[in-house]
Computed example of a mutant assay.
Amino acid sequence: MDAELKPVKIDDLRPIREIVFMELKKAIFDGRIKEGEHLVENMIAEKMNVSRTPVREALRQLEAEGLVINIPRRGAIVKGITMKDAEEIYDLREVLEGLMVRLACQNRTEEDISRLNQILVLMEKAVQEKKYNKYLELHKDYNDIILSSSKNKKLQLMMENIYEYLTSLRSVSLYSQDRRVLAIEEHRQIVNAIDKRNEVEAEKLARSHVKKAKKSFFDNLIEAND
C-alpha cells in the first residue's frame, strides 16, 4: 500500500481509532487507496504513528460498512467506493427520492404518517443520547416506510440499491451532531408535506435534504483531511 497517510495530530482529541477510520475512509473515497489494495495493519500504524490496535478496530469498521472485505490468509482488501461514485450516488438519490416522496403523497395511509412521526421522536431521543447506531436503525425504518408507501416496485429496487451504498456514506454525511439534529427537522418537514399530500412541496424538501446531505458528506471529508 503506497498511499500517503497523515500521522495523527497530537492536538486531535478524537479517539485514535476514529481518526484512523476517517483517514482511511477519506483515502478510499479520494482514490489514494484503490479497490483491490491490501490494508496492512503494521504499515498503516507506522504511517500514522499509532499502535496496531486502533488500526485493527478501524479496519473492522470499514469492513462493517462494506468498504473492505476480509479474505482468509489474504487479509483486509479494499472493496472501495470513489468520490466520483459518491457524487453520482447522491445525484441519483436526489432525483429518485424526490419521486419517492411524490408517490408517497398519493399512496400514504394514516398509519404510515403515525409511524413516521413516532420514528422522528425516537430519532430525536437517539441523537440526544448520542446513540448513533440506534439513530441509523431508525433512519432506515423512516426510509423504508416512505419507500413502501410509494407503491412502485421498480423504484423500491433502485432505492434499496442506493441505500445499500449510502450505508457507508452516512457515517460521514451525518458525522456531526448538529447535522443529525438538522436532518431530523428536514425529515419532519417532509413528513408534514406527505401528510398534506403536497407532492410539489414534498419533492422540493426531499431534494433539498439530499443536497444538504451531499454537501455535509464532502465538507466532512475535506475537514477530516485538513
Results as ranks from 00 to 15, higher is better:
Q61L: 14
L62R: 04
K25H: 00
V8H: 08
N42C: 08
I16K: 02
N49P: 00
E23R: 05
D12Q: 07
L5A: 10
P7G: 01
K26T: 08
K9Q: 10
K6E: 05
A45M: 02
E37W: 12
I19N: 12
G36W: 06
R52I: 11
I16T: 15
Q61Y: 12
P54R: 08
F21A: 01
E57K: 15
R17K: 11
T53I: 13
D11N: 14
A45P: 02
E37R: 08
I19W: 09
L13T: 15
V50E: 07
E23P: 15
S51F: 09
P54C: 04
K34D: 06
A58G: 09
I19Y: 05
L39Y: 13
G31P: 03
V8C: 01
L59Y: 06
P15I: 00
P7L: 00
K9S: 14
K6T: 01
I16Y: 01
D12F: 04
I28N: 02
V50F: 03
V40A: 07
R32S: 14
R60M: 13
Q61V: 11
L39W: 11
N42G: 01
G31Q: 11
D11R: 04
R56A: 15
H38M: 07
V20Y: 12
G36R: 13
I33L: 15
L13R: 15
D12T: 09
V55D: 05
G36E: 11
K47T: 00
P7T: 01
R17Y: 01
E37C: 03
K34A: 14
G36Y: 11
L39S: 00
K9C: 02
E23Q: 13
K6D: 03
L39V: 12
E35N: 07
I33F: 07
F21C: 05
E41I: 12
M22C: 06
E41S: 13
R32W: 09
E18G: 07
F21R: 04
H38L: 13
N49C: 02
A58M: 08
P15S: 02
V20G: 02
R56Y: 14
V20Q: 03
L5F: 07
A45S: 13
V40N: 14
I33C: 07
N42V: 12
E41M: 12
R17A: 08
K47Q: 09
L39A: 06
R56E: 09
V55W: 11
K47N: 05
E46C: 03
V8S: 04
E35F: 11
